[in-house]
Design a protein around this nucleic acid. Structure first.
Lengths: 149, 149
DNA sequence: CTCCAACCTGGAGTGCGCTCCAGGTCAAGG
DNA sequence: CCTTGACCTGGAGCGCACTCCAGGTTGGAG
């Protein structure tokens, strides 16, 4: 099952057509095959690269680094150690990112609870988010809530 | 304990001085107090706003939305419902973001395992990351690993 | 009083990652 | 053959969130 039209590759990877062309132009994706008429044909290989790029982008890797990775991979087997290292470091950054995101998410949820404890807040919140213990709309504003309401 | 110098506010919030000025300029932070000579003095209130902005930025909220939130808050108590809604929707987006990040992190870890199973990969990986079951450097390349090495 | 680091302003510039455009070409259905 | 929608190229433009700059002012230590 090889040979995807540009639109199909875009659909499967989640990148736009322009982005696919851009990635090729800057040397992320090398040597994409063409039809006699010059239109791109993406292989399964290209697709697996795109899925990797999708992963790396979604986890915040800058394009310059993805490019380095791709160039190492093309340079041959002997760069495996460096590629491993690159991914390994990236994973560490992602872990840090996840921790930060979790922390700030908790902060956010606390802020939201402040609104849910506000008198008069018993409306759609009850409908849209019935998870958090419903039924206490006490008129007590959380202490320590200075401003930034 | 009120009245922080700009540099102190920057340190505590994690924003640069330029960013603090920028946030004031675009109307995120309103009416920051000044000394007679015109230098900014940040209050505890300002600080708690900044920490909220830090939270929202770290979780990917665009500045335009933070601005809307801040303007609602300044408009008075009667906007509490809308502010709640705004944060609530944002929280949902953050949850989605966390799920995606986790998924792609898993993908990344699988990729890394591919390198760790490569023969000859028994080096620093053993030292830097002793967590994942050490001791299997079998010479078997994972099946299905087409390219994007 | 002097010094100098920290601060001020308005406005221009930057880096990233696309995204859009004009003006053509290709290829499959009818 | 003709049409039409998907595709091609090079290059300009964009949106975001800052970041930097020049040229001047402030204010606390010595």
């Amino acid at each position: 099952m090889s040979g995807y039209a540009p639109s199909e590759a875009a659909r499967r990877s989640g990148f736009s057509l322009d982005t696919l062309r851009y990635y090729e132009k800057i040397g992320l994706l090398a040597d994409v095959e063409r039809t006699a008429g010059g239109q791109r044909v993406f292989t399964d290989d290209d697709l697996s690269w795109l899925l990797l790029f999708r992963c790396l982008r979604d986890t915040g890797m800058p394009i310059a680094q993805m490019r380095r990775y791709a160039q190492l991979a093309r340079a041959g087997e002997h760069t495996a150690a460096e590629r491993h290292e690159l991914l390994h470091h990236h994973a560490a950054r992602v872990e840090e990112q996840m921790r930060l995101l979790q922390r700030q998410y908790d902060h956010l949820r606390e802020k939201i609870r402040f609104y849910e404890r506000l008198p008069g807040a018993v409306r759609e919140s009850q409908i849209e988010q019935p998870t958090v213990a419903a039924g206490q709309a006490a008129g007590q504003v959380a202490a320590g809530q200075v401003a930034a309401g």
